[in-house]
Design a binder for these strands. Sequence first.
DNA 1: TTGAAAGCGCTAACAC
DNA 2: GTGTTAGCGCTTTCAA
Lengths: 324, 324
Amino acid sequence: MAVTIKDVALASGVHVSTVSRTFSAAHLVNPDTRTRVLAAASALGYRPNRAARALSTRRTGNLGLIVADIANPFFPPLIKAAQAHARRSDHHVFVADTDEQARVEEELIRSMATQVDGALLVAPRLSNRLIAELSADVPFVVVNRQPAGLPAVLMDVASGAAQAVDHLASLGHREIALLTGPRASWTNQRLERAAEEAALRRGLLLHSVGPNQPTEEGGAAAAPGVLALDATAVLAYNDLVALGLVQELRALGASVPGDLSVVGVDNTHTARHCDLTSVDMPTAAAGRSAIDLLLHRISSEDPPGTVTLDTRLVVRGSTAPPPV
Amino acid sequence: MAVTIKDVALASGVHVSTVSRTFSAAHLVNPDTRTRVLAAASALGYRPNRAARALSTRRTGNLGLIVADIANPFFPPLIKAAQAHARRSDHHVFVADTDEQARVEEELIRSMATQVDGALLVAPRLSNRLIAELSADVPFVVVNRQPAGLPAVLMDVASGAAQAVDHLASLGHREIALLTGPRASWTNQRLERAAEEAALRRGLLLHSVGPNQPTEEGGAAAAPGVLALDATAVLAYNDLVALGLVQELRALGASVPGDLSVVGVDNTHTARHCDLTSVDMPTAAAGRSAIDLLLHRISSEDPPGTVTLDTRLVVRGSTAPPPV
DNA sequence: TTGAAAGCGCTAACAC
DNA sequence: GTGTTAGCGCTTTCAA
């Protein structure tokens, strides 16, 4: 049996409530008794039982982190940062993967509800209505989506997309293809708009191609369509799409960046290795900000805020001047 | 306030204990009352409070998953699979990242101890002694390490490494460099031995180079040393090392696979994209097996077992015959 | 088959 | 500054 507050009380000759205070409101206890209690506690190897504490305080010290797909390289840096940041305020993090399914997402949230103080929803698939409904049970912070009334952290692809278009224009490209992603994706919406605006500003022709599956397969499938256009450069919804496209283009005999320049979005690990020019998403910073917002929301009645983080282009070897 | 067992009892006109039984030992309650209780429960949206339940049953329904670095592409598929598999038996998973530090690992385990029924340690950095000590508090299953007396899941790189050496020998290579990883790593030990044996068997000369940092930087740093050898092929500790090496080799003017063939280990997402020949590690299967072992260990007194999973080589474009 | 009651480990008034 | 007591939501004997 694990050592409890009772054992510590016995060992240090005080009542359990004094032991409790020593750990949850140290300033209310006499310094002498406190040292005595602390000594006994560490001698016995006492650790407060969080579940028991949660029962009376209604604070579990746990957070939920719900993502669409842990294995998508976009997420791990965010998970890592969020988890590390949460730990600083002594919170543990449940990580769950919805497999991109809204129904799983809902069930996950409901089943976690009694065990967490709040949850981070990253690019949720749920309807706004359902998010609002569930947020009555669990305080949420949403990442890369903006449901009314909820605190959100947004990695705004707009700035990076504009830089990408500028970069391509400077290289001499005149026609660009945009491989769009899921219509419902907030990122996709921002990306489309920003690319259109930037193309207009620079006098480029923008071909919108999509929606595409946000995967390598989606990118590969788009390759023939891209080749059929007169575009000399492509901006893809994310790195997976970009890399799938590059692979298929090369398989079809086209050279990247010789015949076609390709730009991805997310700046994942893989983009770095595959020498893909990409729009960097500040996922780690987003994870930390989201945890901050969540902890703040949990412990205060302030109106929820929104944090918007900028993105920036990272130029690598997949972009070059168009063929002459 | 969330709806509790009490509310359900009131609404269905039975005592709380009957409601409790309906959820935890349904067979002990009259079918009629049961339907009544269930109806009331779902009407009110009742969900059992797991923390409260844990207090009396000493079962939290939570598991811990502790890895060195969530952002290392080796881990996400394992985390994803483990988490999904745990969910099938209604378990939630705390995921935590030790940043490769043994001290953090220990603290994490201790702080989770009261909140989990067991934990998965993936490639732990802790000493065997400490692992044994902590396992008194928390049932463990260890992945890719084999502390005496604990159940373990091993992804045995030996089979894949042998295949890699065979593959290189068949291509005509006679001298191979092995970039080793951390000495303490079980995988590294297996890798070294298997490579040596296979080289001997095939009559190849094996140059062992290392230990290297298990990162891109480690691989890049090893490039000059590799070029100084007469080796025409390299087997690297993992994909990160392999990719770092490839990048640096190319920067130094060497062609891969023209001048030098390179094989990685892990078969990460990135290896697939960068066309790197690599030894596939069955990380998802390992995650599931580990969860199975853990759940079994938690609910039975049987002696702990060990599961060994084989690995296999995946040939891609980073290997070719040696230069003539 | 169901109800009553004690207790899991801890916190939070309230009294002294 | 510390002890007393009730109670968080649930399970689990024990009786009935």
